[in-house]
Design a binder for these strands. Sequence first.
DNA 1: AATGAAACCAACCGCCTAGAG
DNA 2: GCTCTAGGCGGTTGGTTTCAT
Length: 376
Amino acid sequence: MGRSPCCDKIGLKKGPWTSEEDEKLLAYIEEHGHGSWRALPSKAGLQRCGKSCRLRWTNYLRPDIKRGKFSLQEEQTIIQLHALLGNRNINARSVLSSQACFLGLCRWSAIATHLPRRTDNEIKNCWNTHLKKRLAKMGIDPVTHKATNGALIGTADIKSAKAAASLSHMAQWESARLEAEGRLAQESKMRTSASTQTSLHPQPMNPSASAASPCLDVLHAWQGAEIDLESPTSTLTFTGSNSGMLPIQVTTSLGISKSNSTMWQQTCDELEGEESEWKFLSKQQLQGLEGKERGEDIIGSEQPWFTGMVGVGAGFTDMLLDGSSVHGTSECWGESSNGHAEHSNQVSGDGESKTYWSGILGMVNSELPSQPPPLL
DNA sequence: AATGAAACCAACCGCCTAGAG
DNA sequence: GCTCTAGGCGGTTGGTTTCAT
């Protein structure tokens, strides 16, 4: 009947690990691998429960962990992926449980798969201590990535249109999100299984491994192209004729050009003064979107179906980046001695791809399996 | 130099799912 | 099919460090 208990939790040490304990754990895993975490502590001569050992190993002792401050690019990736993967609140849980959780994925771990050598715990801490606060400070709901007080939105009508558009496309967004998450999870699991071999003999970050995450190409481009990261200027430059077009997306524009980037001040007051930009889709395009909501293939289309997601514009992430540590952009991905610059160059010619959700779409598209998303 | 506030981060806790029996 | 546990995850806590006054 079942397995025996993990640990009796009696006489087991808790709290900070000592260097002696670290050495014991490290030495044991290097020699034997972790195998069963439950059995490990006694074998390694540790007065800890297996769970504690596992955490210590995965979050601290693993030799392939990169420590230290997060680079600008890493932060940007976290923000974007957080927006993509969403928050795991109760509703999200209920929605995701049957599919996403079935696939064994969770948000931080999924994000961690795209931040080489960073642990989910570290990413989580970064989010909670830095990024979330910056969002909140700017009046952006860190859960939904939307403006919390409408300060960024021009008029009530616009807000209404936004809300309607948002709702009308939420379902397909959710589908695509699940797809992306599923892909991430598969990737994560593959890495996990592979890591049983590599964990004992970690290899330096392989540039090709970085390149093997095509979903980040857009992020790279966004980072590496002509955007001045010190100048959180909206990159959305869509200015089509309004004739016969329906506005369905609002993205924030800070209205700050690169030339006046030095004027950039990260305050909510400034944000309130910003205007919103609209994207316009033709009625035909909207009909296409509606069709997609009925389960038609939404992937592979060049239409920005995701534009129904509102409130998250190119400006948001840029705003977050706040001009701090802007010179550290090469720290993370740049560790791959090649590849990064190439990625940037490949996509930098496409201005549209530099928008926030274009980036995410790029991720989704590149991550999605060939199968259409399951209907919710 | 002392003190309080804020930031940081390692570790714990509780929950969930897969899988063994 | 059911029970029970191990492993894994996200949320949260609390100790430590850094910064501001």
